[in-house]
Design a protein around this nucleic acid. Structure first.
Lengths: 208, 208
DNA sequence: AATTCCAGAGAACAGTTGTTAACTGGATGA
DNA sequence: TCATCCAGTTAACAACTGTTCTCTGGAATT
């Protein structure tokens, strides 16, 4: 049984989404700590005070953006490190998946890369928590692989973090190459592929 | 023949340094894109207009901070990846060196981590250029190692970037653990050590 | 000793900011 | 139908912003 939202609730959610969209656009050329409340309401086309009906502060809006940007990413992570195919295929698939996501959600990627170490503590904390969850999901996926036999939990989590960080670095490189000629994106693909390959090799000989 | 600066030049440099120091402190809890010119002059204790005698804008000040934070780091990088000792010793030495640098220059590390993907284009560019130089120096150091025999230039640079990024990630983790109990810093040391170990293993079997 | 130079001060500018309080009018539920 | 609710509006506030122009007093140069 699904519950249809009333006209009121629906309109409120619509406005809220307009805030998130406008903020994300404005944040392409600045950091969250310099994003003004009035700036956002102006972009949305509502009165400044309307902001308070949805968020306590711009920091609060930032946390909501983290959920939007990373929340929908969990299913993709599973696929990225899934155990289908040999390692070379898996690497190629992972890099392509990252490139695709950056191409379709550039503003989200930029926001996460920017605010991960940014000047707003609650937002940093929210990103940290989500990435921790990511690492644990990757770890769970890695544990399924027969290659993980004999690995300690700590070592698996160590490897998972390495993969997650590498994913972010690669995404950020693709982002910088977004407006550049195709040749530049190909260079990033090559680099990321070989770095992942090296990690995979190290993984294969870890227990020697 | 060294040239003693005149009273005038000396005083100017002193004020300029006061600007850099004050900005670095203010930037511990915000991003450069939200740093106000008046805010900095207030912290230094001079009139707002004095700012223009030293910098065109806060972005310009940011670029100067990049040079201060990363320029003095080049000698250390050499030592980090120097070819003395076996690989396990080298890894331990590198991690300790990073931990030490974070402990003595936390604000510098925070600034670089924050503004690398921050909202001010010229500053991002300056950091990117310096990190590129770092990677090339690391590559040159790696090339000296007998283990590098048979490696292509591209692969060496690929590995160098992997090391540089890993250095930054580790530094950032140490930074977050700075105020935490010693136990937390030990955890970071363990994690970074094992990640570097895995990369080293991959490096050893790269040509298989 | 006389002149030039220039880091920093002072005052003023038009715009901007976050936050408050009191309001309106259409959706909601009795 | 009528009272209640609440997303968004309007107006006003003191405080702050970057930038301009003009001035000053001590260092630097001649």
């Amino acid at each position: 049984m699904s519950h249809t939202l009333g006209i009121r609730q629906a309109q409120k959610q619509k406005t809220r989404q307009a805030f998130l969209d406008a903020a994300l656009t404005l944040l392409e050329e600045q950091s969250l700590s310099s994003l003004g409340l009035r700036e956002v309401t102006r972009a949305v086309g509502v009165a400044p005070t309307a902001f308070y009906r949805h968020f306590r502060s711009t920091a609060d809006l930032g946390v909501a953006l983290v959920d939007e940007a990373l929340g929908s990413l969990h299913p993709m992570v599973r696929t990225t490190v899934s155990t289908t195919g040999d390692s070379e295929e898996r690497i190629a698939r992972a890099v392509e998946l990252i490139a695709g996501h950056v191409a379709t959600h550039p503003a989200h990627v930029r926001f996460i890369a920017r605010e991960r170490h940014g000047g707003v503590q609650p937002v940093r904390e929210a990103i940290r928590a989500q990435l921790q969850r990511f690492a644990e999901e990757v770890k769970a996926e890695l544990a399924k692989d027969p290659e993980a036999a004999g690995w300690s939990d700590d070592d698996l989590l160590m490897l998972a973090h390495l993969y997650v960080d590498q994913m972010l670095i690669t995404a950020s490189l693709f982002l910088e190459a977004l407006e550049a000629p195709e040749e530049e994106r190909e260079r990033v693909t090559q680099l990321a592929t070989r770095q992942l390959r090296l990690i995979t090799i190290g993984r294969g000989h870890w227990l020697d």
